[in-house]
Write a protein that binds this DNA or RNA. Structure first.
Lengths: 265, 265
DNA sequence: CGGTCCTTTGACACAGGTCAAGTAATGTGG
DNA sequence: CCACATTACTTGACCTGTGTCAAAGGACCG
């Protein structure tokens, strides 16, 4: 694909942007690739400050010209930690997990990524984490070097990236208080509330929360074991706070109470 | 101070940059304010890619013109979480902690900051965390709005900030694996190794590690209790891995072994 | 229909938390 | 210079939330 002309690339791009549907997820792709790169931040409720407005059509064209699209199947790695970082990606459909490992295999999932999210944090030219698809996933790939060239030409873009980075940083700090100071129950509830909020941001229903990841992934994200995650779900169910429609879909029966638990009240 | 002329500001600035010495710390201030803003990243060993080289003298002058200096005493807050964020800061001397609280008072310290570090992450125009001095601390303050204006004029600066943000993000992920997956022993050792590395980056000796913070702060940073931190120090001491010169100064007796423990071997 | 994988549940263990007391360092007023 | 208070750190005894180990569903699939 890297040998195709820009024109061909653009054509494929449009294909992917407007018509891809993942098989297991019912996530409609609501954004063009451009929109994805400049989509609203991961934490704000508002969609108001999309940087798309800051880019004029010729600038948009420039971005499109250095993009290719990638699709990966569930369980497929996108890249591994410490691998030379040649690309950055923007998720357009599906879901990914990013994680770090300790030498003995202990794993910490540092984030789940959904359409609109940016992937490819690097440190000293290597990726800072591994990334793997949870479900069939579509991404836009940017050559890192060419994107950097573009950054100096389109200052708005850099501003946008800086904004994304600081929101990710804020999210990372929320995760630190979760991992350092919250109980298992608070962690699980925080996780459900977070997924629900994230769905709303992507114009999906807040309520039956869909979990594209398995219990092991949830445990490795929350710093718990699968047994504790499972027991906590059972406990919340018995207390009438949630309902497990099935393994992967949870109904938040008392959203207000759950929000209180998540924030530590 | 905000009413003084730029010239006066610059004079004060130089004072603060070259002559301030904190009372409790023996941290010489090795950088000008400009250097601090563009000082090497928090995680790289190399000082090579200082963005200072990217700024021409007139650009440097522009930065200096929107700066004022601030000094705060130990235990003094710099700002609180959720407060409107009007300034960003660069630490030039001393040390700070940044933290978040849960409603019932549980606290997670998300970072300790030293000369060269940047403070003032905001989200939706309010600070994302509280910041408080550990020891007498000197900072350079930038009006956020004026800095933003400057960013559009000096693209290099934005690049530099983006670099700082992604390194902070990488550090945040290291902290997540620590909080989510490491034992108390591994956390404490990781902390000591991290402080030692951080001292080296600031051109100070790697070995007697100086702890400007108390046990409560260490516990709240590592997601433990003060008792566990204290017991772990004692255990490491008994095993001949460290030596407590006093409460606040620790000798790393077996650095290689400690590094292995920290990385999870 | 047997195998595989994921989730749930149960019994038990233990790392780290809690509560309480002891020790050391520092400051304060007489 | 000394009683005394204060604060920070350490240590001990005990407890509990979460981990560990093991087994039992349950869903999916060839």
């Amino acid at each position: 694909m890297s040998q195709t002309s820009n024109l061909q690339r653009q054509a494929k791009l449009s294909d992917s942007c407007f018509s891809i549907r993942t098989q297991m997820e019912r996530l409609p792709l609501q954004a063009t690739n451009i929109d994805a790169l400049v989509s609203p931040c991961d934490k704000c409720e508002a969609r108001s400050h999309s940087a798309c407005a800051l880019l004029d059509p010729s600038e948009q064209k420039q971005i499109v010209s250095i993009m290719t699209t990638v699709q990966i199947a569930p369980q497929q790695p996108l890249f591994d930690e410490a691998e030379p970082a040649e690309h950055v990606y923007n998720v357009t459909g599906g879901a990914l997990k990013i994680y770090k490992l300790l030498p003995d295999g202990r794993r910490q999932i540092t984030g789940f990524l959904f359409p609109g999210d940016f992937v490819g944090l690097m440190h000293n030219d290597v990726y800072a984490y591994s990334a793997e698809a949870l479900v069939p996933t579509a991404l836009c790939r940017f050559s890192r070097r060419r994107l950097e060239d573009l950054l100096s030409e389109i200052p708005h873009l850099e501003q946008r990236l800086l904004g994304m980075a600081s929101h990710e940083l804020a999210a990372a700090q929320d995760q630190m208080i979760l991992l350092g100071r919250k109980s298992a129950r608070e962690r699980v509830v925080s996780f459900l509330v977070m997924l629900s909020n994230s769905a709303v941001r992507r114009h999906q229903p807040a309520d039956p929360v869909s979990l594209p990841m398995n219990r092991t992934d949830i445990a490795d994200y929350l710093g718990l074991t699968i047994e504790t995650v499972s027991r906590t779900f059972t406990q919340l169910k018995k207390q009438g706070l949630i309902q497990l429609l099935d393994d992967k879909n949870i109904h938040l029966a008392k959203p207000a109470a759950l929000r209180d638990i998540a924030t530590g009240f």
